[in-house]
Computed example of a mutant assay.
Amino acid sequence: LNRHLWLLDTIVTAAPLLGLLGTILGIIDTFTALAQSGISDPSGVSAGIGTALFATALGISVAVYGLVFHNAFHERVHRIGDDIKILLIRAGTHEASAALAAA
């Protein structure tokens, strides 16, 4: 059951980093627009800032949703493991009491 949880964990870890990369690229676009047209062109500046903010928000959103699902799946795996342990203990004690009764 734990076999593919690493993938969800990787997405949770990598999503904010990719959002940060998008933020950096958006700021670079902003500085490029400022260098080419100066402060007189607010549309070029705001496009780069918009890209940066969108990338950050998207990265954080993916990480939060992924973390919620990762924790839910991880909890379910532990609960199933605990249930299996209880069943094995009950089966073991049942066999032991049956063996004592037969003796």
Rank of each mutant, 00 (worst) to 15 (best):
A98D: 12
G26Q: 02
I49Q: 02
I84R: 09
T51V: 13
L8C: 07
A91T: 14
A96S: 15
I84P: 05
L20S: 13
V64D: 00
G19P: 03
T93Y: 13
H4T: 08
F54K: 14
E95W: 01
A15K: 05
L67M: 11
A72W: 01
A96V: 01
S43M: 08
G92S: 10
S43W: 06
V62Y: 09
L7M: 11
T30Q: 01
S97G: 08
T10V: 11
L88D: 15
V68I: 15
I60Y: 01
V68L: 05
L20D: 00
T56I: 03
A103V: 11
R79Y: 03
L18K: 03
P42V: 07
I28E: 04
I60W: 02
S43N: 14
T23A: 15
G19H: 06
Q36F: 09
F54L: 15
V45N: 01
A33D: 09
K85G: 10
H70S: 07
V68M: 02
A55P: 06
I86V: 13
L7Q: 10
L1W: 03
S43R: 13
I86W: 00
I49D: 00
N2C: 08
L7G: 07
R76E: 05
S37V: 08
D82I: 04
V12W: 01
L17R: 13
N71S: 09
L58A: 15
L5N: 12
R76W: 03
G59A: 10
D83G: 08
T13A: 10
D9R: 11
